[in-house]
Each structure stands twice: as structure tokens, then as C-alpha cells.
Amino acid sequence: MNDTAPQPGKEPVAELNDVTRTYKMGDELVNALSSFSFTFHRGEYWAIMGSSGSGKSTLLNLLGCIDRPTSGSYKIRGREVASMDDDTLSTFRGKELGFIFQSYNLLPQLDVLENILMPVMYQDEVPEGIEDRALHLAERVGLGGRLHHRPTQLSGGQQQRVAIARSLINDPALLLADEATGNLDSRTADEILELFDELHDEGTTILLVTHEQEVGERAENILRLKDGLVESVHRGRRGQSGATELFEASTPSTAAATRPGAGSASVSGSVSGSVSGPSSGPSTGGKA
């Protein structure tokens, strides 16, 4: 059922294998994710979509290592995180993951540069030249001239840019964006999404959780969740337009993912995900 074998030329970054996350709601046990298996590869740009309660937040929390699966295995860059203790997990988050939130989540008592350097602060060893990297990132997101401004002195778009620079400071394996454009007007949102496009072009692995169709469509691939299961996997605009040539070369089709009636959906090639649902297979048809 599981197709987690590495694809040639494709390095798996985040591998979820038979992951279940169960919450206790009163007396009832609710499966936010049930036997979820999926693999994200390096350099991919995924939009994770779904209505509320579909499990996308749970998936993001698991991917971001701020939550742990009830059962199953989750590996980032080949390291199993499901069994890490709290401290190791914390350090791991700081080093391997970049977070971008809907409400920016900068610390008001720190200036731009300090906010960008925040994830470094909690590491036992400070990497050489990290300040230059922070300066470079600030420059990269267009805030080179506002290094010592406080977040309250910045516009929403600028704050989100700081947050993006912060998420990149440790060169993370995964960039996790949770409704990153949700609080921004459409023009600013566009700028941020363009920044994501650029980062994608530079090889950053991006997972963008969104409920906005418009935003999701811009990604390379779209993962649609429903009731803790994969509903559909299909290509976004970037995937089709051939923005990533490497990607284009080994892509048969997304049809495999949408094969009707199958108990599991396996997307070979770059869109390599293995989905298994005990109760129902993923529904066909990507777009609603």
C-alpha cells in the first residue's frame, strides 16, 4: 500500500507513514488524522487545503513537530521525530523547520534583526556568520533598511516578510506556512506569494496551508484533505506551467492520484504520496 521508496532524483524531506492523531473530545475519541501516509520531497511547493475539521491544522502541527502522532512514524530528512523527547524535538524544530503564521507572530519587544535571529537564540551552538545571514535575509525580503524597527512600526506585509526571513534563518528542511496571506490585502498577499515562488525557485521546500482557492492554485501541487484523509492530490498552476523543469521531466501524470475507486492513491514521480485510508479511498477529481 505504501509507496515511500525514494524516487530517483527526488529526496524525501518529510515522510509520514501510517500516522494517526487522536484527540479526546469529552468522552469521544476523534481521529483528526487516520492512518495517514504521505511523502513530501525536497524542493516541492505544496498547498494543503481543506475545510475546517479536515485535519489540515493537525497535519501542519505534526509536520511542524509541535505535536506528536498518536501512532505511526514521521521522518524529517530521514530522522524519526515521533519518538523524540521534548527537548530534542524543540531543538529539532528550531533547526529543521521554518514557521510562517497567519498573524506573523513576531515578538514586539525585539527589533527586526533580533526577530529574524530568534530561532538561533535557542540553539546551543551559534552557527558561524549567522548575523551576516540574517542581514542577507532581511535584504532578501526587502527590509534591509529597517533592521532596527520594532514590529509595531511595520505594516502587515512587512511583518510577514520579517517572519519569512526568520523562518529561513536556519535553512530549514521544511517551510511551513499557515494561512500566511490570511491577514493581508490581496496586493500584499500577492507580493508574499511571489516571494514564495522565488523561494521555491531557489529550492526551498514549502508547505502552505490555506483555505483560499486562489492562493492554493498558485502552488505547485495541491493536497486536499477531508475528514483526516487525503481527498485529492493534483497539480497547481506552478506545476503545470513548468516553472520547475526538473519536476516536469519525470512526471507522468496526476491521474494516478485520481484514479477512481482505488483503495489507495499513489502518485508517482514528484508528486509522490502514498495514501491509505481504512474506511474510504480518496475521492476523485481534484478541484471542487
Binding site: I66, S90, T91, R93, G94, F99, F101, N105, Y122
Partner: peptide
């Protein structure tokens, strides 16, 4: 803020 710090790698002891 505590959530943010934890997400960005702060351990409990931090």
C-alpha cells in the same frame, strides 16, 4: 508568545 518561542525551538528550560 510562549507558543511562538516553543515553535521556533525554545526548550522548556528556555
Amino acid at each position: 508568545e510562549i507558543g511562538i518561542r516553543r515553535a521556533l525551538g525554545a526548550k522548556r528550560k528556555h
